[in-house]
Design a protein around this nucleic acid. Structure first.
Length: 594
RNA sequence: GGCGGGAUAGCUCAGGUGGUAGAGCAAGCGGCUCAUAAUCGCUGUGUCGCGGGUUCAAGUCCCGCUCCCGCUACCA
């Protein structure tokens, strides 16, 4: 048994999340965690909503809300979406908790004490009316190179050159149109160059990482520069230093606080679990493994910057130092990054309405159809495309026909002939062969899941489903009226393999797996689901979190012998088939341009 | 510009450490009828982006080129 931290990227709470988001961090991390739990490992899966920063404020203003109200609103929407998808977080929290603030300040203080945080004056754009930092991407103006009128502050979309916003002609704020002011402002910087040496040395030990992640990270380290970790903004974690703490317009930069969430969420989980020190089992024990799941745009934060922060707080960079109050903390073991999901060939775009929200999707089609699609056709190694036509095909032909119908036909036969799970007689070669295939699948599929090869893993599991369908065609139990002993053996074998296939599919399709488990006469929780619980902190408001009692689920990554005599009832279809018209038109909430 | 990824049957894609190209879908034929008109079997097709090179042998390694995509850090 091993301890495994599943650290899942934190969705940003400035709106509902679309299926591209959950295809990157959500479904893969859950499949992985469920598999690891079933294999007997001690998994801690944490995440939360990322709620600070300028875009929250922009969204809040658009809706006439305060920052806090906007964060509350989208935190809840996202919590409900992820719960609906069945993502089995041990804790899904948020960055606006007192606990998170305390942990972030703790790490900042340790970095500061050890000399990895330095103050510097820089030239930055601020909004004159609010005094807030105006990020480059919220500034537009005329490109000084090509004269294009709508160049962004960081890059000109017309000539492609990278720009400095201060060079723009007639710069203006995209938020409210005012002219940004460029002022000297003092900020803290994370001294990444002084951590580059230890980062390099550490990366050299990551030999099993995907070459592209490793290469990408090594290249970044070669040209690391100090990176700002504070901003002129009133919405964020206060800087825990005298002279800074009380400045209303100085806060820690959102990326810095968000990435610390993996740690703060583990600590919050420990408090809520009743043993406040329990988080150390995943963070302080060098034997514990940590797997970080994210989209490819986030690799740099997890392979370089977050490890840099940890090394600095551990006192393991060029400046040395001593570990912070939390002690020496583990660096990431694995980075599991996904590529991007596109929608009918284009990028998802909220502003152009080219988007499919998770909530809409699962209300209409249920969680497992989406989970299946993402697992089997998601952007695992390369960008992949979502089309309604492909979704309908996968759902109808693969989920409903191959798997759902296998369950249905097997249980139907046994129910009609025996009213329950039949007693097997002597096995024939064909029976043994199928059972052997099923038995071998645990190792095959498991090895793939351990390496986060989800596509291949679910394809292998579905191969067993196909074998079972073939087996029924070959043995034709419906023709064995005159040989009930043989028929019972065949049906028993078929049901056993249905049970095995269901176990193999449980990490991918936990909701359907629970139904199949029950249809085979099982009682109680097979695959546990996350619950929304309302919690609070001393001195703080109530907020919703996702938690779950996963230790009590019965699902185990091993063949579970079915029990002859267990009564069965007439089965109902496992998956509803979709109207093929849907493939051409899309659903009402995401019509293909009609 | 820099870095990275992709380019394989009509379509969607697999093809760690080199050895005469695979799967699913779509199409055709046949079997079966237990099951959500479900299922099972059989039948094709490929200059593996282009041009060189290494090798007995390259989709698989090296060099160059073309096209597509992503990242490029003060975005979250």
């Amino acid at each position: 048994m091993a301890r495994i931290l599943t650290a899942v990227a934190w969705p940003y709470a400035n709106g509902p999340r679309h299926i591209g988001h959950v295809s990157g961090f959500g479904v893969p991390s859950d499949v992985f965690s469920r598999f690891m739990r079933m294999s007997g490992h001690d998994v801690l899966m944490v995440s939360g909503t990322d709620e600070h920063g300028t875009p929250i404020g922009v969204q809040a203003e658009r809706e006439g809300l305060t920052n806090r109200e906007a964060a509350d609103k989208y935190n809840r929407v996202i919590v409900e979406d992820l719960q609906g998808l069945g993502l089995s977080y041990d804790l899904f929290t948020r960055t606006t908790t007192l606990n998170h603030y305390a942990v972030v300040q703790d790490l900042f203080s340790a970095l500061h004490r050890n000399g990895y945080v330095v103050a510097r004056v820089q030239m930055g754009a601020i909004s004159p009316s609010t005094g807030r930092t105006l990020p480059d991407r919220y500034i537009e103006g005329t490109c000084p190179i090509c004269g294009y009128g709508n160049a962004r502050g960081d890059q000109c979309d017309n000539c492609g050159n990278q720009l400095d916003p201060i060079d723009l002609i007639d710069p203006r704020s995209k938020i409210n149109g005012e002219t940004p002011e460029f002022v000297e402002t003092e900020h803290f910087f994370l001294d990444l160059p002084s951590l580059a040496g230890s980062l390099s040395a550490w990366l050299e030990t990551r030999t099993d990482w995907r070459p592209n992640v490793l290469k990408f990270s090594e290249n970044l380290i070669a040209e690391l520069k100090p990176r700002a970790i504070t901003r002129d903004i009133d919405w964020g974690v206060p800087i825990p230093l005298d002279g800074w703490r009380d400045q209303p317009m100085k806060k820690l930069y959102v990326w810095f606080d968000a990435v610390i969430g993996y740690l703060s969420a583990a600590i919050e989980w420990a408090k809520r679990s009743g043993d406040p020190e329990a988080w150390r089992l995943w963070w302080s024990d060098p034997e514990a493994q940590s797997y970080y799941f994210m989209g490819k745009d986030n690799i740099v934060f997890h392979s370089v910057i977050w490890p840099g922060i940890l090394l600095g707080q551990n006192g393991q960079g060029d400046h040395g130092g001593v570990p912070g109050d939390l002690g020496v903390l583990n660096l990431p073991s694995e980075i599991v990054s996904s590529e991007f999901l596109t929608m009918s060939g284009s990028k998802f775009s909220t502003s152009r309405g080219q988007v499919i929200y998770v909530g809409d999707f699962i209300r209409e089609f249920g969680p497992d159809a989406l989970r299946y699609f993402i697992a089997v056709a998601g952007p695992e190694n390369t960008d992949s495309d979502f089309t309604w036509e492909e979704f309908v095909r996968r759902t109808n032909f693969e989920l409903a026909n191959e798997w759902g119908n296998l369950v249905n036909r097997s249980i139907s036969l046994a129910w009609k002939n025996n009213g329950g799970i039949p007693e097997p007689g002597e096995l024939a070669d064909v029976d043994r062969a199928l059972l052997a295939t099923a038995a071998e699948s645990y190792a095959t599929v498991g090895a793939l899941l351990e390496r986060s090869r989800f596509k291949q893993a679910i394809s292998e599991a579905m191969r067993l489903v196909q074998s079972a369908n073939r087996y029924l065609s070959e043995t034709e139990p419906w023709k064995l009226k005159d040989d009930p002993a043989r028929r019972d053996t065949v049906l028993h074998t078929a049901l056993q393999v249905v049970s095995d296939a269901n176990t193999l599919l449980t990490p991918f399709l936990p909701h359907a797996a629970q139904k199949v488990f029950e249809a085979l006469g099982g009682e109680g929780v097979w695959a546990a689901q996350p619950e929304i619980r309302t919690v609070s902190e001393e001195g703080g408001p109530d907020y919703p979190v996702l938690m779950g009692d996963y230790a009590n689920e019965q699902a185990v990554w091993a063949s579970r012998p079915i029990v002859p005599g267990t009564p069965l009832v007439k089965p109902t279809p496992l998956f509803t088939k979709l109207d093929e018209e849907l493939g051409r038109t899309g659903p009402d909430f995401a019509r293909l341009d009609a």
